[in-house]
């Protein structure tokens, strides 16, 4: 079973993602902010990290950069899921090594598709 970590400070959004992906047979875990997400990634193995951009403490970009600098996590799959969808934000994500991007509000069905695609790749 594939493991996915969801990092978003908005509880309702985490809930929505969990509700969306739960039935697709993934093992889901949640992190309330960037720091928690980073700590979890350090400790456990995940197949995918769904990452919010605007979070207290550490932004999604900072979390991604820190993860990418960890030994053995350079190729960790990360998807940015954010309301920040201007071109400069997308560019910043790419610079941080994030290659999957989905703007809020997002379609749960599309999210399912994209997650499948990423995990199959």
């Amino acid at each position: 079973m594939k493991r996915i970590l969801i990092a978003d400070d908005e509880e309702v959004l985490r809930m929505l993602i969990v509700d969306t992906l739960e039935e697709e047979g993934y093992e889901l875990e949640e992190a309330e902010d960037g720091m928690e997400a980073f700590e979890k990634v350090q400790k456990n193995e995940y197949d995918l990290l769904l990452l919010d951009y605007m979070m207290p403490g550490m932004t999604g970009i900072e979390v991604a950069e820190k993860i990418k600098s960890l030994n053995g996590k350079e190729r960790m799959k990360i998807m940015m899921l954010t309301a920040k969808n201007q071109q400069k934000d997308i560019d910043a994500s790419k610079a941080a090594g994030i290659h999957y991007y989905m703007a809020k509000p997002f379609s749960p069905l599309q999210l399912i598709e994209l997650v499948e695609e990423i995990l199959d790749a």
Binding site: L13, D19, A83, K104, P105, F106, P108
Partner: peptide, 11 residues
């Protein structure tokens, strides 16, 4: 605005 909107539309 996008955050609540995301929940509404998503659900």
């Amino acid at each position: 605005l996008r955050t609540p909107l995301a929940s509404v539309l998503g659900y």
